[in-house]
């Protein structure tokens, strides 16, 4: 997992509450054998005028020009500004996979659905909870100035708005540490690699037949 320390990036405002994981990545894409490559189908029904199918090329599909992700000024955004209860619905981990594949590393919203919130951390995405009024201000500032950037500093636990206003956010210290170090469950286990290696060395002597190399 890519470590998350500080992110200075373009933010895109998605002005809807209760965005569910079906909207984030529609069910037909779950047949995929991959966890990469969902980016072009992120928010598929909102982004495209036609219906997306797995395996169907996305280049040249008719875009819905008014959808915020399609606006030229937001191309290359890595921060998603969202409203209440983002990521509700099905527990599919394909939702954070799609957001990550598109390029998002941070989502700022007043609240998140529980499973989605947890899934973000497993995939190196930082979900930031800020009060509704603060998120409102970020929405306004981002809309006011094309090219406006937001700076998210995880060690400091702050979000800086385009105008320079700074807001502190809360995060579980364990989660924070994992994100900064880029550790998912596998990463955490690999922190015990010396213990695993010592175990293997000892077991090779005790039960050599269990080892095939």
């Amino acid at each position: 997992m890519e470590p998350f320390v500080r992110l200075d990036a373009l933010a895109v405002p998605l002005d809807r509450s209760n965005v569910d994981t079906d909207a984030i990545i529609p069910k037909q894409f779950l047949k995929s054998i991959s966890r990469a490559g969902f980016g072009p189908n992120l928010f598929d029904e909102w982004r495209y005028a036609d219906c997306g199918e797995p395996g169907k090329p996305n280049e040249g599909r008719p875009l819905k020009a008014d959808f915020v992700l399609n606006q030229p000024r937001y191309q290359g955004a890595r921060i998603l500004l969202a409203r209440d209860n983002f990521g509700c619905g099905s527990s599919r981990e394909h939702a954070p996979w799609a957001l990550l594949d598109y390029g998002f590393r941070c989502i700022i919203a007043p609240s998140f659905a529980d499973i989605f919130y947890n899934n973000c951390f497993q995939n190196g995405i930082l979900p930031v909870r800020l009060p509704g009024a603060t998120v409102d201000q970020l929405f306004r500032e981002v809309a006011a100035a094309p090219g406006a950037r937001i700076v998210v500093d995880l060690p400091q636990q702050t979000v800086a708005s385009p105008s320079g206003a700074k807001f502190a956010f809360e995060i579980d210290p364990f989660r924070k540490d994992c994100l900064i170090k880029g550790l998912d469950d596998i990463g955490l286990t690999l922190e015990h690699l010396p213990a695993i290696e010592a175990y293997e060395a000892r077991r090779r002597g005790e039960v050599p037949w269990a080892f095939l190399d």
Binding site: I186, T189, L190, I196, E200
Partner: peptide, 14 residues
């Protein structure tokens, strides 16, 4: 599947 990945990467399981 996430545990499959964990075993592939670490040869261990939690």
């Amino acid at each position: 599947t996430s545990q499959v990945e964990h075993v592939l990467a670490t040869q261990t399981l939690l």
